[in-house]
Computed example of a mutant assay.
Amino acid sequence: MDTDEGRTTLTNQSATPHGYPEPHGYPAQEPHPIDGPGTSTGGFPIYAFRESLPGPEPEQGYPATPDYGLPGPDGRPGLPDSFGGAGVLGKHRNPFAVWLGLPLITLGVYYFVWVYRTNRELGEYDRRIQVNPALSLLAFLVGWLVLVPPFVAAWRLGTRTRTAQHAAGVPETNPVLAFVLFLIGFGPLFLQLELNRLWDRYPGAVEGQQVPLYR
Rank of each mutant, 00 (worst) to 15 (best):
S52L: 12
S52V: 03
S52K: 06
P54I: 06
P54N: 06
G55L: 12
G55K: 11
E57C: 04
E57P: 09
E57S: 14
P58C: 01
P58E: 03
P58A: 04
Q60D: 08
Q60E: 11
G61P: 12
Y62A: 14
Y62S: 14
P63D: 04
P63Y: 02
A64V: 13
A64T: 13
A64Y: 09
A64C: 05
T65C: 01
P66W: 00
P66S: 00
Y68W: 10
Y68E: 04
G69L: 07
L70G: 08
L70H: 09
L70A: 11
P71Q: 09
P73Y: 10
P73Q: 13
D74K: 14
D74W: 14
D74L: 13
G75C: 08
G75R: 09
G75A: 07
R76V: 11
R76Y: 10
P77C: 00
P77A: 02
P77S: 04
G78F: 03
G78R: 11
G78T: 08
L79W: 10
L79R: 14
P80G: 04
D81Q: 13
D81F: 14
S82R: 14
S82K: 13
S82W: 12
F83C: 08
F83N: 11
G84S: 15
G84R: 15
G87R: 04
V88Q: 13
V88H: 05
V88R: 15
L89P: 03
L89F: 03
L89Q: 09
G90D: 00
G90E: 00
K91S: 02
K91W: 01
H92W: 13
H92R: 15
H92E: 10
H92Y: 12
N94W: 03
F96L: 15
F96D: 02
A97N: 05
A97F: 10
V98D: 05
V98H: 07
V98K: 02
W99C: 02
W99Q: 06
W99K: 02
L100D: 01
L100P: 03
L100G: 04
L102R: 07
L102N: 07
L102T: 06
L102D: 03
P103C: 00
P103D: 00
L104S: 10
I105V: 15
T106W: 04
T106V: 02
T106N: 05
L107K: 01
L107E: 00
G108R: 10
G108T: 08
G108I: 07
V109Q: 07
V109H: 06
V109T: 11
V109E: 04
V109S: 06
V109G: 07
Y110M: 03
Y110D: 05
F112G: 05
F112T: 04
V113F: 13
V115S: 08
V115N: 12
V115I: 15
V115C: 15
Y116H: 15
R117F: 10
R117D: 11
